[in-house]
Amino acid sequence: MAPIVSIRNLTKVYGNGFQALKGVDLEIEEGEILALLGPNGAGKTTLISIVCGLVNPSGGQVLVGGNDVVKDFRKTRAMIGLVPQELTTDQFETVWNTVTFSRGVHGKKADPARIEAVLKDLSLWEKRNNTLRELSGGMKRRVLIAKALAHDPRILFLDEPTAGVDVTLRREMWQVVEKLRQDGVTIILTTHYIEEAEEIADRVGVISGGELLLVEAKAALMKKLGRKELRLELTEPMTALPEALGAYNVSLAENGGALIYEYQGEGEQGRIAMLLGALTAQGIEFRDLSTRQSSLEDIFVELVEKKA
C-alpha cells in the first residue's frame, strides 16, 4: 500500500539563513502512530508545518494521499488536522463556535451532530457554551484537538501534545490518541517526552539539526540499539578484575562490590552462561543479579550526542 505521507529530500532555509531542514526523507503508513523525537530547534515543527501548509518548503516534495501539498493543497489539507504546540485560541469565542468554525473553514458543511460527537468524545460537551478564556490549560488543549478533528481528518498532527500537561491529563491524551488510532486515523506526534513515544508510538523517528537520524519500528529500535546490562552483586568485594575475565566486557562498580557486564541485546545471550562459568571457575561468588535494558531515552541521547 502506498504511504499516506511521503516526504522526499525536503529542505527549508528561513529568510534569516537558518537551515531548519537538510534533505529529509520519510514515509508514513496509513493508520500508524509515528513519534518524532528531537531536541529544541531540531526541525520537528518546521517539518510538520510544511506538510500542513503553514510554511513554504525551500526544496523537495511532500505528498499526502498521493497529492502534492503545494500544488494540490485543497486535497491534502482537507485530509489533515493539526493540533499546534502553543495554546492558541480565540479567547472570547465559545467552544461550540470555535469548533464549528474549524469545520467550516475546512470546507465541510455545518453538521451539529458531528460537532456534538467530537465534543462528547473529548469530554467537552458540558463546556460547549463556555468561552475559551474560562477554560483550564488542559481543557484548551482538548478544544484544539476538537478543532483539528471537526472536519474528520485522516491524518492528525500533534505538535508536542502533552507539553506542560500534568500526568493525569497526559494519560487521558494517550487514551484519546489510542481511540483515534482505533478509528483508523494516522497520527504523527512530536514530543520531548521519550516515555510518550515509548508508550504510544508504533514507529519512532529521531530528528536533530534538521536531519532525520533514523526511523524505526519502536520494538525493532529498542531491540537493535538497546544495550543490556547484567549486574552481579558480589559476596566479597574485589579490588581488581581477574585476568580470566579480560575477554568479557565487564567492569567493577560500587568500590568492587558489583560487577557490570554490558552486552548487546541480540546474539550475546550465550556468552552470559560462559561468563557465569568463568566466575565460578575463579571462585567468585555473587549474592544477587539483575539485568536492565537501555530505554529509548538512552538510545536517543546517544544518537543525538553522536551527531553533535
Partner: peptide, 14 residues
C-alpha cells in the same frame, strides 16, 4: 497576533 492564523493557513482555502 494570537497565533490562531495557523488554522486558516493550514485549511484547504486559497
Amino acid at each position: 497576533f494570537t497565533g490562531t492564523i495557523y488554522e486558516i493557513l493550514s485549511a484547504p482555502v486559497a
